[in-house]
Design a protein around this nucleic acid. Structure first.
Length: 572
DNA sequence: GCCGTTTTCGGCCCGACTGTTTTCAGTCG
């Protein structure tokens, strides 16, 4: 973050508001789109766009032209945007929130303003309570009922309704498997979940079948389904008993690739793809690619869809309009790391601290996964509530590791530790103990509320420590529960790159830490990653799958992830 | 408002479903 300048999030929010209000006012559609695109670009940019705009260099970003740059620079230097202030005097800014309610939109928000005097959510509540919505154009009794239900639901549970990847992915696969079993159709998870997003709003499924209606009927009839939300011949949306919204689309097998590509998105990726096709005089949709003569090209698989457009197949995790289409055109896509590339897991727990499986059980599970090595990394003593080990118990644990090793072939058991980074920056073990360990992961588990300089100093001290090999869950965030602690990311990345200290991508469903954006920055800074399960049970070793998805979204190749190496090379 | 191996002007991504209308616009993904 650059001192005194508005952050990218704030800049993007202002431009989004401008887009929303212009849309309600009835501005030309593509002008609205330009504001939204510019805002999305700013949000996804790792540097300070305000600083770039002041220097006249924001126009070098795609989707940012002279006009948007001027507005960002004005915001950076004066703290306001004159055009936005004038717009707010014509269109009450609270209407933007009203327009985002399900079932409403810019046109109905405007009608509510002009015909019922609604200027925001509170005004809408009053108008509803007083029955003043009858007669407003485009708003009938069903919309009124839906609005009342929505506002009541918000009062009851204001928490965000996003499901974390680690919960949504297994749930989605359960639905897909049940549907496949019931119909014999091929069913695939698509949408943001397939792209590895760490939180998702809903689950998209794509099914290949010559009898689509039977598949739609089958979904509505599954025991997992609580409520059918929409029903049509081509699209069904349901809510499962565990609260997940699931949307199904179907296609005959010969154009399943077109459907899967369409449903996987992202929206921005698909827009770019369609623009590319349009320049070639063709049109892309889930039904196929139509050329100027009206001929339709379809494909049973996604690779055929991309090939038709002159592109390499693009891994779903990269489909975010970050330059992947150009890379695919030029054959420059990275070969992303895969779960099968991992040679071992260096962050796992056993019954010696807060794990539920013995070292022997964890070793057997690691062997079953085909690992070459397993780091047994129980907590250190300061984490008393997790049964952290003091040096004496640690030494006795080493004896057990040696005993178990005798009965296990194929997997090398490593003396590892997840050692606490104490509040003052010291580590929870002496250097002598640390030196005897094969692998040391240092983690922050306490004093999260320290000021950013203190947290930064703790992380830097651990990174600079000669016996520390990796930093565990580097930001401390818990998905949907708490933000990570604040620290100076650039300094931490610089130090990690310089000292060769790995940063972890922790695959625990509640963590996913680093996240994809930070992992990408780490790679750009020259930092090597490590993908870990942080398993506290044998089944949880599978959490590396979540971590690999995050690493792939960051663009990581196998060589960017340390634990794709054999142990001797990694140790050295 | 942005952008250009068709363009510095004239384009700009595509289709399904719902609720509101009385044949379709708006919303959603």
């Amino acid at each position: 973050m650059v001192e005194g300048l508005p952050g990218n999030g704030e800049v993007a929010a202002r431009l989004e508001l401008m887009g929303d209000l212009l849309e309600i006012e009835g501005a030309v559609r593509h002008r609205v789109l330009a504001y939204r695109r510019g805002a999305a670009r700013i949000r996804a940019t790792p540097e300070s766009v305000a600083a770039l705009a002041v220097a006249g260099r924001a126009v070098e970003l795609p989707d940012i032209g002279a006009t948007l740059q001027d507005k960002v620079a004005e915001l950076a230097t004066t703290g306001t945007i004159g055009a936005l202030d004038r717009l707010c005097s014509r269109v009450p800014p609270g209407l933007a929130e009203v327009a985002r309610l399900p079932g409403l939109g810019p046109r109905r928000a405007r009608a509510l303003f002009e015909q019922a005097g609604v200027t925001g959510l509170d005004g809408l509540r009053r108008a509803l309570a007083e029955g003043r919505l009858a007669g407003v154009e485009g708003i009938g009794p069903k919309t009124v009922a839906a609005l009342e239900a929505e506002l009541a639901a918000r009062d009851a549970a204001p928490a965000d309704a996003l499901a974390p990847l680690g919960r949504a992915l297994p749930a989605a696969e359960r639905v897909a498997a049940a549907l496949a079993a019931a119909t014999g159709a091929r069913v695939e998870v698509a949408g943001s979940l397939r792209r590895g997003a760490d939180r998702v709003k809903d689950v998209d499924l794509a099914a290949a079948s010559d009898d689509p209606e039977a598949v739609h009927r089958a979904l509505a009839g599954l025991g997992l389904v609580d409520e059918v939300l929409t029903e049509g011949p081509e699209k069904t949306a349901v809510r499962t008993h565990d609260g997940l919204r699931v949307e199904l689309r179907t296609a005959p097998p010969d154009r399943f690739g077109n459907l899967l590509q369409h449903l996987t998105g992202s929206r921005a990726h698909n827009v770019r793809l369609r623009e590319l096709a349009r320049r070639q005089g063709r049109s892309v949709s889930e039904h196929g690619i139509v050329d100027a003569e009206g001929r339709t090209a379809t494909s049973p698989d996604e690779a055929g869809v991309y090939r038709e457009l002159g592109l390499e197949w693009i891994p779903p995790e990269l489909r975010e309009d970050r330059g992947e289409i150009e890379q695919a055109r030029d054959g420059r896509l990275p070969r992303l790391v895969e779960v099968g590339d991992l040679r071992g897991d260096l962050h796992t727990h056993s019954t010696w601290s807060d794990g539920t499986a013995t070292i022997a059980e964890m070793a057997a599970a690691a062997a079953a996964r085909g690992y070459d090595y397993l780091g047994v990394s129980d907590h250190s003593r300061s984490l008393a509530m997790a049964g952290g080990l003091d040096p004496d118990r640690l030494r006795r644990q080493w004896e057990e590791i040696a005993r178990v090793q005798e009965g296990v072939s194929g997997v090398r058991l490593l003396r590892a530790s997840e050692v606490d980074i104490l509040a003052d920056g010291r580590l929870d073990f002496d250097d002598e103990v640390l030196a005897a360990l094969d692998w040391v992961t240092a983690s922050v588990h306490s004093a999260f509320r320290q000021p950013p300089e203190r947290i930064t100093a703790r992380l830097l001290a651990a990174i600079e420590h000669p016996h520390v090999d990796a930093i565990g869950h580097p930001t401390g965030r818990m998905l949907g529960r708490r933000e990570g602690y604040a620290f100076d990311v650039d300094r931490v990345l610089e130090a990690a790159a310089r000292t060769g200290t790995c940063l972890e991508v922790n695959g625990q469903p509640a963590r996913l830490d680093l996240d994809a954006a930070l992992a990408r920055r780490a790679l750009e800074a020259g930092v090597r990653l490590i993908v870990s399960s942080d398993a506290h049970s044998t089944d949880a070793l599978g959490f590396v799958r979540n971590g690999v998805l995050v690493a792939r979204r960051a663009g990581a190749r196998a060589e960017d992830v340390a634990n794709t190496r054999q142990w001797p090379g990694l140790r050295d």
